[in-house]
């Protein structure tokens, strides 16, 4: 397929595409975190889903379908010529769980954003990643007007293992979001080392 004129193009290295998931409850700051560290304005695509209504068994299957779209926002960080890191926020609506499955597949790890005004909204994310043995860190996103809880209080409420980092963050601040990601990847490396030597 190589032709004379295609040789004039410099051959670029094709990078490894890896991903980190940014999860958390509705409005916890997922999109904000992705935007603050991404090198590009977050990209967006959507997934279509057919939503079948309940109670149509008598009709012999799915009779009543509507199509719903799920927005998927993601950012990108070029690590080197060989590696590009993608950051995917989980869809805001909880019912789109199937997207979580695919997002988590092959991910390096996950950041779970905890909003202390409604900490319970991240419980399902904690459950989800624990069950899949996908390493995660908890980033406590401090909103104005929210009671300031200590790391220990959050850790206790979330009931996460002592090895899971719980860090304070401000998703709007690039450096803060970067620190969260650094914490996550360090944690992933520590977990791997523990697994290899244990």
């Amino acid at each position: 397929m190589a032709s004379a004129d295609s040789d004039t193009q410099p051959t670029e290295a094709i990078p490894h595409a890896v991903k980190i998931i940014v999860a958390g409850g509705f409005g916890a700051g997922k999109t904000t975190l992705v935007s603050s560290v991404s090198e590009i304005a977050p990209l967006s695509t959507e997934e279509l889903m057919t939503e079948a209504s309940y109670g149509v068994d008598d009709l012999g299957g799915i009779e009543d379908k509507t199509t719903t779209t799920v927005a998927l926002d993601f950012g990108r960080i070029t690590i080197s010529d060989d590696i590009v890191l993608y950051l995917f926020g989980t869809p805001g609506q909880d019912r789109f769980w199937f997207m979580w499955e695919e997002l988590a597949e092959g991910a390096l790890g996950s950041v779970i954003l905890a909003d202390t005004r409604r900490l319970d909204t991240c419980f399902h994310a904690v459950d989800f990643f624990e069950r899949r043995n996908l390493p995660f860190v908890v980033a406590v996103n401090r909103f104005e007007g929210a009671t300031a809880y200590s790391e220990e209080e959050v850790r206790e409420a979330l009931d996460v293992s002592a090895s899971v980092p719980v860090v304070m963050a401000d998703a709007r601040e690039r450096m803060s979001s970067k620190e969260v990601l650094v914490e996550l990847v360090s944690h992933v490396l520590r977990s791997r080392q523990a697994a290899l030597s244990g």
Partner: peptide
């Protein structure tokens, strides 16, 4: 990959 990602993120 993990080590490179860590280095890359630190230098952001």
């Amino acid at each position: 990959i993990l080590h490179a990602v860590l280095v890359g993120l630190r230098s952001l």
